[in-house]
């Protein structure tokens, strides 16, 4: 009895050691550790087959291949993203990561995609404009670009008109709230919204007025220009060989690239 329990504890400890060694460090030398929020489709999430997938993750994989690095997807708690990046446990953040308003906080690649923050409501809610949101409950994800915008001075008046600005942990909970009628609108990224209402386009609508138009980039720790430059170069390479366009078509049905190389190629 005693022997078997000692043995099982030993086996357990060995299993844990192996488990911890299977995790890798973010040294940027043999691996490219991509920090992302796994609750954020279509940029990064758990796919049909149970593996991580998404537009940004596919781009990251293509870039890592060009750099000869092994890509490692590290889901992170979004609140802790700055600590993760500073302490070197992830190499970069690639996750529908809005540059606007954060220009000085990270080293950025060029913007690779246009995006924006919008308001999503139920089609039958009767809400057509920002003015109709007065007295309504609006949900927004914690630490998100939409929240940052709504809390800025530009939107102080609009935000003040809401019955409540409900900050939620993740959008999925907000969608359940919206469906159940507990919130009247969600402020979020246009592509996330499009993904979420796919197949239910009749029940939801996106207001014509946008909160903010913005651009996505890949964010690095301040000072880490070396890796930033490498990733930037690799991005340009995958544009040149068509991989970028392929990934973009697959996820959004159009070539979403807004890198300067794409624009010059298009002209």
């Amino acid at each position: 009895m005693k022997k078997t329990s000692t043995l099982s504890i030993a086996v357990l400890l060995i299993a844990v050691f192996l488990f911890s060694f299977s995790l890798v460090s973010a040294d940027g030398e043999t691996t490219l550790v991509v920090g992302f929020d796994q609750d954020f489709p279509p940029y990064g999430y758990i796919g049909e087959d149970g593996e991580f997938t998404g537009y940004d993750l596919d781009l990251a994989a293509a870039v890592a291949e060009k750099l000869g690095l092994e890509v490692v997807y590290q889901p992170i708690a979004w609140d802790a993203k700055d600590m993760e990046l500073d302490s070197g446990t992830i190499d970069l953040i690639w996750n529908g990561f809005t540059i606007n308003g954060r220009e000085d906080k990270y080293e950025w690649t060029e913007a690779y995609k246009d995006a924006g923050q919008i308001i999503l409501v139920k089609s039958d809610s009767g809400i057509e404009t920002f003015a109709d949101l007065a007295g309504k409950v609006v949900a927004v994800q914690t630490d998100s670009a939409a929240l940052e915008a709504l809390e800025s001075e530009d939107f102080a008046e609009l935000t003040a008109s809401f019955a409540d600005l409900l900050v939620v942990e993740q959008y999925n909970a907000a969608f359940m709230d919206l469906e159940a009628g507990a919130v009247d609108a969600i402020a979020l990224d246009i592509d996330v919204a499009n993904y979420q209402i796919e197949g239910k386009e009749d029940s939801y609508k996106i207001l014509d007025e946008w909160i903010q138009e913005e651009q996505y980039g890949v964010g690095f720790k301040l000072g880490n220009t070396e890796l930033r430059d490498k990733v930037q170069a690799a991005l340009e390479e995958i544009v040149a060989d068509g991989t970028f366009a392929e990934i973009s078509e697959e996820w959004f049905g159009y070539d979403s690239c807004v890198l300067s190389v794409c624009q010059s190629a298009g002209e």
């Binding site: 999430y45 796919g47 889901p75 708690a77 802790a80 359940m176």
Partner: peptide
Amino acid sequence: AFSIAVTEMFTVAKAIASSEKTM
């Protein structure tokens, strides 16, 4: 545990819920 990005069961459940739009 997920506050320092260790993916335990509840985190997995949340992630699947948001990607699959299901409860």
